[in-house]
Design a binder for these strands. Structure first.
Length: 822
RNA sequence: GCCGAAGUGGCGGAACUGGCAGACGCGCACGACUCAAAAUCGUGUGGGCUUUGCUCAUGUGGGUUCGAUUCCCACCUUCGGCACCA
């Protein structure tokens, strides 16, 4: 009975059986502890790549492990189906985005099934389905009702290649995150979500996310960018006008020698109107406006400015300082106005040098004396205040407090906290997305579509051939409608929502994917949420993970769910690379999962991808490494088959030393594999433990002729069960072959006996002055005194100690003895 | 520039809380089987040396310690994030 490991047949057999019997289906079982294991759902771009395989395999092992450990496990999957690639495919290949998307979904679903991932397929979500995106629109209307969705004209990021606006989070280094084109600035009226209302909470709650990697939390914290400072009111000389600045350094107020406004600042025109400076200012504004974000930041940050002819009055000393426009002052941050302190801010320093503006030192660092004449850069640190009237002599920190108090008393300023986070721009001038459910009525203005009329469906008969015009805007039958309020003719909104809105609440929908009366059922969400383990790529550290947290908080405030944070634990998996570079078609280093599955089987693919590196790190693909895993599975297959006859026989021979060693190995392996999976997600070491176990079994097979069937049975059962989350198909087959009727998926994860998990004997390390000089095998329950005696009586050790005075003997119980000589 | 992560054999990677550096796997070498090859199995495998042993070795240089891949300080390199945020 030398059956060969026919993975293709085995995998097909079990995938069919799992599918047919719905073995991964779950429902809420009140009173049973739950685990919600979730991998970031894929964008259906065509076929799965190795990054997907890694993501879903990691999630599957965690899900299977938790299920076997007694939890009620929710493990769903879906597709983030709206998005630009579908539309680009439509343009380049002439296929409708819907058709393209659904074809890809079918392909990817088949691939996921061919990997044997334990999904509850009845919960599958496709975000472009009307019964899903309807609720996305519904949520939008709730945001609108709450004032969290609004429309505003502002300078926005425009990708000329994608022909749409982008959120700040989607601009990487001035380039489009998707197509790498230069991003331009355009003045457009766009829809925003007011994520800034939640800036404080989004930042503060990061602290509670103990199960998140520190670096992700730091990235989010940096993105939110909290800073503490003060708002200070300056007045404009000769005009009854107040301009407020935001500063993080009130202690430098006396050092302000000029005043800066963003070129787009709304007050600029008023200031220069009818003055000789008006023309120059106008030209400067135009010049800056023409420049894209990338140009504004790429020219080695050359400071540029323009004098307005007007002066501001400093509230702390009534000094008159000139008001300039400067290219480096941003309208979107703070108040768009800045007090310039060239002595203590590097940018202001450079600006002052270029335009010959005065520099005044007001902070002296301890031990050094700053001199304006010789200094080559601003001193930006803290110190002692000088030239600051009654505040002179104070330290920066106390001066800051005192100045804020002083300003508050005079009614000229107050303490203030600022965030870098901007509101989330969600409108996209694209077809393949979720339509924004509002109409524009000449009489009523912006009118939401009534809930009973949702969803606003995407019309399917659209023309993608006209480059430069996005399809919906020209479609009369879609655009022309009636105002729901006054029934007069109105125009429909043609923008669609950023696809990140679809992925910001899908994890809630999985808890009741077929709910018809709400985005999700409150009770099932209460049972399953929050997600206990979320797994996905680090590239979503800011965008998706921040948006999803924001949505959860809003939905919670709307009373739809109870939780404030969606994901308790986050695992960010590393990239799959080959030859030192990310797999990509252009580099030609792509390894196709289909090829690996057909050549070695899904179990080998899964095993290798987990074995080659710990999940958080980059994974270097190695064809030879895959072969190694394939060999291992073959060894297991052969070994179990060789052992089968002994399992049936009830020869109850007495346990001898070999049997005992094997029993120790069984329990040691269970212990280590359990800890590796549970505590650290170190699947690579978990697998290496199983390999060691198999090596030990193989040795046992050779050494022990009269096999102890009881111990052997325990060993084989353990092996199959603990290997099953990694290589489920082969383990199911072996499990059945050794006589089990039920799926190994329903088996309990084995527990270990601590006494057996401990070795009987240990290797006692004996050091002399920290160098290993002998190793002695001793009983594990040896006392400290015995350890010392054994060590000192060793012949090898005597050689080193002879003639020297033993100064100290350090004994680490169960480990080593270190003899320190004089 | 600021923030963060990481540097260990020929390669991927192990080493719990400071206690045998290199588990497990790949590769390589030799051997067995074979007419032969593949597959499989076995043995060996960080460097150096005067090889029952000694010695050097975890990016570099210091430090703490009986003992450091692990802790501290400085530096180098690589990767990632942010980048005129007042």
């Amino acid at each position: 009975m030398k059956a060969t490991y026919n993975f293709a047949e085995i995998e097909k057999k079990w995938q069919k059986r799992w599918d047919g019997s719905n073995i991964y289906k779950v429902f809420e079982e009140i009173g049973k502890p739950k685990k919600y294991i979730l991998e970031m759902f894929p964008y259906p771009s065509g076929e799965l790549h190795m990054g997907h395989v890694r993501n879903y395999t990691i999630g599957d092992v965690i899900a299977r492990f938790n299920k076997m450990s007694g939890y009620n496990v929710l493990h769903p999957i879906g597709y983030d189906a709206f998005g630009l690639p579908a539309e680009n495919a439509a343009i380049s290949q002439g296929v409708h985005p819907k058709k393209w998307t659904y074809q890809n979904i079918d392909t990817m679903r088949n691939q996921l099934k061919s990997l044997g991932i334990s999904y509850d397929w009845e919960r599958e979500i496709i975000t472009c389905e009307p019964d899903y995106h309807k609720w996305g629109q519904w949520i939008f209307l709730k945001f609108l009702e709450k004032g969290l969705a609004y429309k505003k004209k502002s300078s926005v990021n425009w990708c000329p290649s994608c022909e749409t606006v982008l959120a700040n989070e989607q601009v990487k280094n001035g380039f489009c995150w998707r197509c790498d084109s230069f991003v331009e600035k355009r003045e457009l009226e766009q829809w925003f979500f007011k994520i800034t209302d939640y800036a404080k909470e989004l930042l503060n709650d990061l602290e509670e996310l103990e199960g998140w990697p520190e670096r992700v939390k730091i990235m989010q914290a940096n993105w939110i960018g909290r800073s503490e400072g003060a708002l200070v009111d300056f007045t404009v000389k000769g005009l009854n006008e107040k301009i407020t600045v935001y500063t993080t350094r009130p202690d430098t107020l006396f050092g302000a020698t000029f005043f800066l406004l963003a070129p787009e600042h709304p007050l600029v025109n008023e200031l220069v109107k009818g003055t000789p400076f008006a023309r120059e200012v106008e030209e400067f504004k135009k010049k800056i406006a023409r420049k894209s974000e990338i140009e504004r930041t790429s020219e080695e940050m050359e400071k540029e400015g323009c004098f307005t002819g007007v002066y501001a009055i400093n509230p702390v000393n009534n000094e008159e300082i000139p008001i300039w426009l400067a290219n480096y002052v941003l309208m979107e941050y703070g108040t768009g106005a800045v007090m310039a302190v060239p002595a203590h801010d590097q940018r202001d320093f450079e600006f002052a040098q270029k335009y010959n503006l005065p520099i005044k030192v007001v902070i002296q660092p301890e031990g050094i004396s700053l001199d304006v004449a010789t200094t080559k850069e601003a001193y930006i640190g803290e110190g002692v205040m000088v030239n600051s009237e009654k505040f002179t002599g104070m330290k920066s920190s106390e001066g800051t407090k005192a100045l804020i108090k002083d300003l508050e008393e005079k009614g000229k300023g107050k303490a203030s906290v600022n965030y870098r986070l901007r509101d989330w721009l969600i409108s996209r001038q694209r077809y393949w997305g979720n339509p924004i459910p509002v109409v524009y009525c000449d009489r009523c203005g912006i009118v939401p579509i009534p809930e009973s009329d949702l969803p606003v469906l995407l019309p399917e008969n659209v023309d993608f051939t006209k480059k430069g015009i996005f399809p919906l805007i020209t479609l009369e039958e879609f655009v022309n409608t009636k105002c729901p309020e006054c029934l007069s003719p109105a125009r429909r909104e043609t923008d669609t929502m950023d696809t990140f809105t679809c992925s910001s609440w899908y994890f809630l929908r999985y808890t009741s994917p077929h709910e018809e009366n709400a985005p999700f059922n409150k009770e099932t969400a209460r049972y399953w949420m929050p997600v206990d383990q979320y797994i996905g790529g680090i590239e979503h550290a800011v965008m998706h993970l921040l948006y999803a947290r924001f949505f959860t908080k809003v939905l919670s405030d709307l009373g739809l769910c109870q939780i404030r944070e969606p994901f308790i634990n986050l695992l960010t998996q590393g990239m799959v690379i080959k030859d030192g570079a990310k797999m990509s078609k252009s580099k030609g280093n792509v390894v196709d999962p289909n090829y690996i599955i057909s050549k070695y089987g899904a179990d080998t693919a899964r095993l290798f991808i987990l074995f080659a590196a710990p999940p958080e790190k980059e994974l270097e693909w190695s064809d030879q490494g895959v072969e190694g895993c394939y060999r291992f599975l073959n060894r297991v297959w052969k070994l179990v088959h060789e052992m089968m006859p002994f399992l049936k026989d009830e020869i109850d021979v007495e346990m001898d030393k070999t049997d005992e060693n094997l029993k120790h190995m069984i329990h040691r392996t269970i212990k280590r594999v359990t800890e590796d999976i549970e505590e650290r997600f170190n699947f690579n070491t978990a697998i290496s433990r199983i390999m060691e176990f198999v090596n030990a079994l193989q040795k046992y097979n050779e050494e022990r002729e009269n096999k102890n069937s009881r111990v052997l049975k325990e060993a084989i059962n353990t092996l199959i069960v603990i290997l099953s989350p990694f290589a489920p198909h082969m383990c199911e087959e072996l499990w059945e072959k050794i006589g089990n009727k039920e799926s190994v998926y329903f088996e309990s994860w084995p527990s270990f006996d601590e006494r057996w998990a401990q070795a009987e004997e240990i290797n006692l390390i004996v050091q002399v002055n920290g160098k290993v000089r002998d190793k002695i095998v001793v009983s594990a329950d040896i006392t400290k005194e015995e350890m010392e005696n054994q060590a000192l009586s060793s012949e090898k050790i005597k050689k080193y100690v002879e003639g020297k005075q033993v100064k100290n003997v350090i004994v680490v119980p169960g480990r080593l003895v270190n003899i320190v000589t004089a």
